[in-house]
């Protein structure tokens, strides 16, 4: 295989109307796919999930027009699975736009032809948070909860007593609130104040 000029170099020479105009002839036919084709940096290729950054929030799944990304919950095993199927991807990069953590990484790969469909699928599994109170898994992943804790300002966390409550299932949370309400029956304070008190105790 002949060493080839860079693709753009070649195309510069291709830019001609009559043959006399160019001095050195450059071959236009390249031994593609055995060599790499130069892509512009702006090209939108298939995205890639960085499992270290992904928190499993599912924002990308909601945005994806052709359902190339899907989320599944397996409450028995306590995992949440994010699957990316490049065969369905239309390379629109909506997912890249909406991802809060930058886990969806843009690439400019466009050649996805393969003889093995498994190559096209990327799977990221997340551990679901576990509620000690009722012994069930939450809808959220552990990382999601960490992330929420990290980005919310202190006041809000205090106001809603999130430190304690965030790890609970919806049911347990409601039960706690009801208990508090019972304790202070006839009290005119809004519920969150009661909760706050509860948090401080």
């Amino acid at each position: 295989m002949a060493e080839s000029l860079s693709y753009t170099e070649k195309l510069k020479k291709w830019n001609r109307f009559e043959v006399e105009k160019f001095s050195k002839k450059a071959p236009v036919t390249t031994p593609y796919p055995f060599i790499d084709i130069e892509k512009p940096p702006e090209y939108r290729g298939i995205p890639h999930i960085n499992p270290e950054k992904c928190i499993g929030c599912g924002a990308c799944v909601n945005a994806c027009p052709p359902d190339a990304l899907i989320l599944e919950w397996d409450k028995k095993r306590g995992v949440k699975r994010l699957t990316f199927n490049a065969a369905r991807c239309i390379r629109c990069h909506r997912c890249v736009e909406v991802c809060p953590t930058g886990a969806m990484e843009p690439t400019n790969i466009f050649e996805i032809a393969t003889d093995n469909k498994e190559d096209l699928v990327e799977v990221v599994e997340h551990k679901l948070a576990y509620c000690e109170e009722c012994g069930e898994y939450l809808d959220f992943t552990e990382r999601q909860i960490e992330y929420v804790k990290a980005i919310l300002p202190k006041e809000i966390i205090d106001m809603y007593a999130l430190e304690d409550r965030i790890g609970l299932t919806q049911e347990a949370k409601m039960r706690k609130t009801v208990e508090k309400l019972r304790e202070t029956e006839g009290n005119a304070y809004p519920a969150f104040i009661l909760v706050k008190k509860g948090g401080e105790e």
Binding site: L11, N15, P40, E42, Y43, R44, R91, H93
Partner: peptide, 25 residues
């Protein structure tokens, strides 16, 4: 051949501007 050769630079330009040869997305 010539018409399509003349056309090609527009496609490259569009690819650089929008991220796809065909303005998709």
């Amino acid at each position: 051949m010539h018409a399509w050769r003349i056309r090609e630079p527009v496609m490259w330009l569009v690819e650089r501007l929008t991220g796809n040869r065909k303005q998709y997305g």
